[in-house]
Amino acid sequence: MSTLVRELKASYAFIERNYYIVKRYWAWELVWLVYTVANSLSISFIGVGAGQVSGGTGIDTSYLVLYLAIGTIVWRYLSVIFYWVTDVVGMERWEGTIEYTLMAPITRLMHMLGQTAFAVLYSLVHTAVVLAVTVLFFDISLQNANLLGFLMLLIAGSLSFIGISVFGAILPLLFPERGAQMTHLIIAGMLLVSGVYYPVTVLPGWLQPFAYLSPATYVLDGARETLLNGADTTSLWPFIWPLLLMGGVAIPAGLWAFREAERYAKRTGKLHRNG
């Protein structure tokens, strides 16, 4: 059996294991999905109520609702990927299986491939449910939307988010007790600067440059072009190439950093300690 085939089979172990975990925790998954949908709807309702709150007229409510809905849907998609990938170490520390997994004959590339493949599939299903409920709830028309372009943006955005998430996964490796909590700092920073619910131009000037370092900014801008304005796929390139570039840099850099962190943990004995 060639090494590649064996490694690919080993990579599938993470997809299958995570599927089993989701199946076993089905009640929790249902609660999480309902929470996610309710959360997304409540943010979109801000758009419906904006006129009443501000007392202003001339607000295009449908546009504002869809603007906010795109924010919640895209952010949900990207943050779910982030949490699944950063949890690659955290969940195993919690269960106490980290040593068993890290002594298996599988490269970190294939290890991460399995975990991220599941993360993307899981997140796509979640996003589809949230999108469907939002469309039905607010009677949103997607007739002019370029759904193929939207999907391409999500996939391109996944790559760069995976790279950042692999960096995040290092924290529980280096800091057994508090590493998992530290990952929230990364996602909170991106939520603030990426224009999830507002244009980045409303941010203070000193904060705006950070928006261009966040892949979520490009996914959100591109998604709004496709779903709000029906931009065709070819016109999405200005949003897609920065995402591919970020992914192309962040994934190998993240894997390198993870390998170094793993060496550090093996040198100092931090794998054994359960946080």
Binding site: K9, A13, R17, I21, T97
Partner: peptide, 22 residues
Amino acid sequence: SFFKKLSPLENLMYGARLYGLG
């Protein structure tokens, strides 16, 4: 050390796949 919500078979399937078993 196991995934405690998973069954013995599910845990063993995970272990076996990590080592390249079908």
